[in-house]
């Protein structure tokens, strides 16, 4: 078995692979990612960088001149009361919608889940989820009708409960809450489904063990369900915060039309997204709008990071 190498290959020199042979496989890879890569670069990462640039310039889309103005755009912005108003509105919107949505979603998930003696509420789950897939403008139409102070269903319900009628979208105090109600209606199904998926991953024996130990109701939830569901809760809170902070379509649609320009009455529903839109595309102050966008960008990123930090300390990961 020693002489196993025949003479005709013994003298061969080692061969270097040709360049194209070495790069053949990677090139195929690059070719395949290219179609999505350029879309991401051109339409997403590019604008993100460009945003940084135009926020510090005085700049107009109709002129080719632009000049560096440093923080000037931000200084102007900070002197606009409407800017602070929009931040306040946005904060109010997020602080009200996110906790309510999260709590309702947990409650609905518990109501619809499969439990001892109960089948999973599949039909109900589908119907609760349904609003989430509907187009915002189309369903806003019916909600404008529901919120109609004269013949809308909202006041009918209030009347049945012996509560005073409201002006809803026409009221400075109730316009934003009306939008909140729509937003919760439209998005709650998504979060409920996320919680349901989380609850479904809890092994049956964990729940059964808890029941054998005599835990019931609140205690089962607090001791058994919550630690297992808290990572999803964190995810839902982050997702809901980021989404609600950027709410645009329903505010535009619900508060536009009969109530004057969107954002009214009296700027009570002017949130950051809406203000950016109006500043840029109605009043064509692109520099100001970019400065606002940059602030929103930083806020959202900051929010995500803070939530991540909190979660790392308190959320129970399996």
């Amino acid at each position: 078995m020693n002489h196993i190498v025949p003479s005709h290959v013994e003298t061969l020199e080692p061969i270097k692979p040709k360049i194209w042979q070495r790069w053949r496989e990677p090139l195929v890879g690059y070719g395949l990612i290219l179609p999505s890569l350029w879309i991401f670069l051109v339409f997403y990462y590019g604008p993100a960088l460009f945003l940084l640039y135009i926020s510090f310039f005085h700049w107009s889309i109709f002129q080719n001149r632009s000049s560096f103005v440093g923080l000037h755009n931000f200084v102007i912005l900070f002197h606009q009361p409407i800017f602070w108003q929009s931040l306040l509105n946005t904060g109010y919107f997020v602080v009200a919608v996110v906790p309510v949505t999260t709590l309702l979603a947990i409650a609905l998930a518990l109501l619809l889940r499969e439990a001892a003696g109960l089948r999973k509420g599949k039909v109900a789950q589908t119907l609760v989820f349904l609003p989430h897939v509907t187009p915002v403008v189309a369903t806003s139409i019916i909600w404008v009708w529901i919120f109609n102070p004269n013949f809308g269903l909202a006041n009918v319900v209030l009347h049945l409960l012996h509560l005073p009628s409201l002006l809803w979208l026409s009221s400075v105090h109730w316009a934003l809450p009306s939008v909140m109600i729509y937003t919760i209606w439209h998005s709650l199904g998504l979060y409920t489904v996320l919680f349901l998926a989380g609850l479904a991953t809890i092994p049956k024996h964990v729940l059964e063990a808890a029941q054998v130990d005599g835990a019931r109701g609140w205690l089962t939830f607090r001791r058994v369900l919550w630690p297992l569901v808290s990572p999803i809760t964190f995810f839902v809170i982050v997702l809901a915060s980021i989404t609600t902070m950027q709410t645009f379509s329903q505010i535009y649609t619900l508060t536009g039309g009969p109530h004057g320009g969107a954002g009214g009455p009296a700027f009570s529903t002017t949130t950051d997204s809406l203000l950016i839109y109006q500043t840029a595309f109605l009043y064509l102050h692109f520099s100001l709008a970019s400065a606002m966008s940059l602030i929103l960008f930083v806020l959202i990123l900051g929010l995500t990071l803070i939530q991540k930090l909190i979660a790392d300390r308190f959320v129970f990961y399996r």
């Binding site: 005709h8 061969i15 692979p17 040709k18 042979q21």
Partner: peptide, 16 residues
Amino acid sequence: TEGHVTINGRIVDHEP
């Protein structure tokens, strides 16, 4: 990493 494979008298080290 190193060495040669010959198939049918042809060195195929870098052949797909």
